[in-house]
Measured scan of single mutants.
Amino acid sequence: EIHIRTNGEEQARKVYKMLAKRNYDVKIEQHNGQWVVTAS
């Protein structure tokens, strides 16, 4: 499982799309105001 911390919604969405293209199961979560993308 991969966790990627991003500094904002826009970046989180870019990372989300990139990983989704590679057939990862991707989730975006917010932790303490930080956007974290989780891929498995």
Rank of each mutant, 00 (worst) to 15 (best):
E1A: 13
E1S: 12
E1L: 14
E1P: 10
I2T: 04
I2Q: 02
I2L: 08
H3E: 12
H3L: 13
H3K: 13
H3P: 02
I4A: 02
I4Q: 02
I4G: 01
I4L: 05
R5H: 12
R5M: 12
R5Q: 06
R5I: 14
R5Y: 15
T6I: 12
T6N: 03
T6Y: 10
N7H: 08
N7K: 09
N7D: 10
N7S: 11
G8Y: 13
G8V: 11
G8I: 14
G8M: 10
G8K: 13
E9N: 03
E9H: 07
E10F: 07
E10S: 11
E10P: 06
E10L: 12
E10I: 09
E10V: 10
E10M: 10
E10W: 12
E10Q: 10
E10D: 09
Q11V: 08
Q11A: 11
A12G: 02
A12L: 03
R13W: 13
R13Y: 09
R13A: 04
R13G: 02
K14A: 09
K14S: 05
Y16Q: 09
Y16K: 07
Y16P: 03
Y16M: 13
Y16R: 06
Y16N: 04
K17A: 13
K17S: 09
K17I: 12
M18E: 15
M18P: 01
L19G: 01
L19D: 01
L19S: 00
A20T: 09
A20G: 04
A20H: 06
A20V: 14
K21M: 12
K21T: 09
R22L: 15
R22M: 15
R22K: 12
N23C: 15
N23T: 04
N23G: 15
Y24R: 06
Y24I: 07
Y24N: 04
D25A: 09
D25N: 14
D25W: 10
D25Q: 13
D25R: 12
D25L: 12
V26S: 02
V26N: 00
V26D: 00
V26I: 05
K27A: 06
K27N: 05
K27H: 07
K27G: 04
K27P: 00
I28Y: 03
E29V: 11
E29L: 08
Q30F: 14
Q30K: 11
Q30V: 14
Q30R: 10
Q30L: 11
Q30H: 11
Q30T: 07
H31V: 14
H31S: 10
H31T: 09
H31I: 15
H31F: 12
H31Y: 12
H31N: 09
H31Q: 11
N32M: 08
N32E: 10
N32W: 05
G33T: 04
G33Y: 03
Q34G: 08
Q34D: 08
Q34F: 14
Q34M: 11
W35L: 02
W35M: 01
W35G: 00
W35Y: 04
W35R: 01
V36P: 00
V36N: 03
V37E: 00
V37M: 01
T38Y: 08
T38F: 07
T38K: 08
A39T: 07
A39E: 02
A39V: 15
S40N: 09
S40D: 04
S40V: 11
S40T: 12
S40Q: 08
S40H: 10
S40K: 14
